[in-house]
Amino acid sequence: MPIEFKELSYVYDEGMPFAHHALNKIDLAIEEGIVTAIVGKTGSGKSTMIEHLNALLLPSEGSLKILDHTIIAKEKNTNLKALRQKVGLVFQFSEYQLFEETIIKDVSFGPKNFGASEEEAVLKAKEALKLVGLDESYYERSPLNLSGGQKRRVAIAGILAMDPSIIVLDEPTAGLDPKGASEMMSIFKTLNKDYQKTIILVTHDNELVYDFADEVVLLDGGEVKAKLKCEDFFSDQTLIDTYKIVLPKIVALRNMLKEKGFKGLDEVRDIEELVERVVDFE
């Protein structure tokens, strides 16, 4: 397992009267090469959990294994920079991290920090920008006067240019329109399928979860409540009732059809195909 949480707890403002237990004895393993979605309501600890993945937060208790790094609570942890190169973390509203005069400079900032030469860094930046769909005409423009969606693409390119093997995304589609969100997600799909990147995606949009994730981890009150294959997650009735999970439209429709007596629709993910099956039924 490339990522393993072992009894990991995290307390904000430890020792203060307003100390807050954000994570409680997390035990979790995340597989390589797949897309794992982390879901749960606001305040359930999703952001706190993923900030551990590149050691921005260090565990208050327990330990965490990421690739060949092990981080243990209350021990001196070294070589965090090497870890940060391998785990690219894209923050919620990542557009705020832009600061250089030109887009190409901003995107090549990451690789340069990790020791790439100027030429290498620019090369990687160009590749990353192409991946997020920004062509040469953008290279010399200022990142600060782009539209919100474009800024976010630049910010994501800035992480991709570091060539991490694990990419962690915190609400990458927050504030984007459905079309923008879907385009954004296809970028990550490509990264997973064509570049074999491990993707960890935090979101509260279950449509996106259903369309893109292989595995789903449910957090609630700082605890892992479930870790299931995507299809199993959305058909686990107890889980859905207990945590009031909003079903993706197609799953909800399938369930309704099933109630009306249609059979053999399980795992049909495409609306057209569903329609065909229903028409052909009898």
Binding site: N54, L56, Q85, F91, S94, Q97
Partner: peptide
């Protein structure tokens, strides 16, 4: 809060 967030983003990009 913003400062922390931006610092974290830049740390993720290898800033020390």
């Amino acid at each position: 809060e913003e400062t922390m967030r931006i610092m974290n983003s830049q740390k993720s990009r290898g800033v020390d």
